[in-house]
Amino acid sequence: MLKFLSLSVLLLGATVAHAERGMLDWADLIDEAAQSYEDPYRDLSAEQLTALVEVARMQSQLTATSDDDQRSELGQRLSDAKTALAEDGVDADWLISQRWVAAERRRNAAWAGDADVDGQIVTLGGYVIPAPADQDGVATVYLVPERGMCSHVPPPPPNQMVRVRLNSDWRPQTIYEPVRLTGQIAVVPTEREVVVVDGPVRMQAAFTMEATKVEPLAFAGAMSAGGKAWVEKMTQQLRDKEGDGLNED
Rank of each mutant, 00 (worst) to 15 (best):
A225M: 03
T63N: 04
V195I: 10
R57F: 08
N159H: 13
D114A: 13
H152I: 01
T65E: 12
A14L: 15
Y176L: 04
G113K: 02
P130S: 06
G119A: 08
Q48T: 02
D93H: 08
G13K: 11
Q76N: 09
R192K: 10
V122D: 03
V9R: 04
L143R: 02
Y127V: 05
S66W: 05
D25S: 14
G137K: 14
G183P: 00
Q184V: 09
P158I: 12
G126N: 10
E248F: 14
I121H: 04
D88W: 01
K228V: 13
D118G: 02
P154K: 05
A17T: 11
A112E: 06
T83F: 11
L52N: 06
Y176I: 02
Q98M: 10
P145M: 06
Y142E: 06
E87S: 07
L24H: 02
E215R: 06
Q61W: 11
K233W: 04
A218N: 13
V164K: 00
V101L: 07
R171L: 15
R42D: 13
P178D: 09
D39H: 03
T190E: 14
K213M: 13
L11I: 15
A17C: 09
V128I: 04
A131Y: 02
M149V: 07
Q59K: 08
R147V: 03
A225E: 15
Y37G: 00
E73K: 11
D67Y: 05
K3R: 15
V128E: 10
P157Q: 14
Q135Y: 09
H152W: 06
L143Y: 05
